[in-house]
């Protein structure tokens, strides 16, 4: 039963993101700025830092693939971005201490990195013509602020859940 908690959490976060985007679309995108919920990235980052690396990579790949197929319909972008981010986070966390403040900041940093990378890719593919200044004002900064709030709320419970399950699986 306890083994199901992480997959279930991943599913709820993944589906919840699109339902949230729909229900609060007026608040998230209706104004002059775009606030993109990135709970999936927060989940993957915390799984990488506090869980086992292998599972984290697997979840990053599967969630990225699902994100591409189900939401954006352009395959490859997030399938590539999520595992690469997970890999880089795991490398960085070998040097840094894994307390909540630092992992929160690293997560936020990687949300910014993913946003910027996806923006560059969209420029390349011709899905947008917004210049970088507008992108950072319209989308990047508001998105980071929204996700900072998410991180502050979810960091502690997320860490506890992942760590307790990890202890479990190592004990077996």
């Amino acid at each position: 039963m306890r083994k199901l908690i992480i997959p279930l959490l991943a599913l709820i976060i993944f589906i919840g993101e699109s339902v949230l985007a729909n229900v609060f679309s007026g608040y998230l995108y209706g104004g002059t700025s775009f606030l993109i919920p990135r709970m999936t990235v927060i989940f993957i980052a915390f799984l990488t830092i506090y869980g086992s690396r292998k599972t984290a990579f697997m979840y990053a790949f599967i969630l990225g693939l699902l994100y591409d197929v189900a939401y954006t319909e352009i395959l490859g972008v997030y399938t590539f971005a999520f595992p690469v981010a997970a890999y880089l986070i795991s490398k960085i966390m070998k040097i840094l201490q894994s307390n909540l403040l630092i992992s929160g900041l690293i997560t936020l940093l990687f949300i910014a990195v993913i946003e910027a990378a996806v923006y560059q890719l969209n420029i390349l593919l011709g899905f947008t013509s917004v210049d970088f200044r507008d992108f950072s004002l319209l989308r990047l900064v508001p998105t980071l602020l929204l996700n900072l709030v998410f991180i502050v709320i979810t960091a502690y419970p997320l860490r506890r859940t992942i760590e307790s399950l990890r202890v479990d699986s190592e004990g077996e």
């Binding site: 985007a21 919920p37 939401y71 969209n122 947008t128 319209l138």
Partner: peptide
């Protein structure tokens, strides 16, 4: 409507 692509602005 049951969902929305969270990655707005691009798609």
């Amino acid at each position: 409507v049951i969902g929305r692509d969270p990655d707005q602005m691009w798609h």
